[in-house]
Amino acid sequence: MEMGYYPGCTLKTNAKVFEDSLLKAFEKIGIKLKELNKWYCCGTVYSLATDNLMYRLAAIRNLIRAKEDGHEKLVAPCSICYNTLKQANLMAKSDEEAMSKINAFMDEEPDYDGSVSVIHPLEVIEAKLQEIKAAVKKPLGKKYAAYYGCLLLRPKEIAIDEHENPSIMERLIEALGGSVVNFPLKNECCGSYNVASNKEAVIDANYRIITNARRNGADAIVTSCPLCHFNLKEMQKEVKKVHPEFAGLPVYYFSELMVEAFGIEMEG
């Protein structure tokens, strides 16, 4: 099966390991993610200013590219891209006035009608758990805390799962032969963009989230968002400076666990 694939800038740079492992893992379960012929930055954050449509152009233009390439479904792995594209698509379906302005402004493009379905890889996985189980060669065997962050769940209209208590990632981990721990902070904010201007907020969040996962017996954290991944993984060294007793945890993308369990060798 082939699906449209929107990588986003981060999967091409800082989160290259996410892209590489995701493409390999999906190939193994029979899904080819076909990168859009042309794509642009998603717009980074869905603008909450409802009257500033300029910030919706990028997202809508990407959806037009997906439609042009003949995709009914567009897979967006980065949580920020997923959130931005999905919310923009929702607007395309429901806000006629905004869309008439956007369509008129982008007069070099065909009008967009909201007909592309934006999905996250975890939603694809949910329907493929049997195939995933069958493909496991090296069952994981460790205990994992599944961390969702905010952007896959909020606002609830675009949530990939039950927005207060999601479980897709847990079901994936179990299918891969790992076990999951109870993890009440699974949908807490990681501190997000505060990492650029207010590191203390991210240090606090990291300390609370990882300590909670450890106390619940986790050997590692599993996530799907490149920004959460950065804040939870790379910021651990900063946390240690503030909390000398802090013991960290390894942080993985869910796709890294998939390739590991499938026994796929990754280059580099």
Partner: peptide, 23 residues
């Protein structure tokens, strides 16, 4: 700061995909 408005591409006398190279 690019918002993908594509105005640059429309302005290019060489008909380059200007927005695409900025992206």
């Amino acid at each position: 700061r690019c918002v993908s408005c594509n105005t640059c591409t429309k302005a290019c006398p060489q008909e380059l995909d200007v927005m695409d190279y900025i992206q």
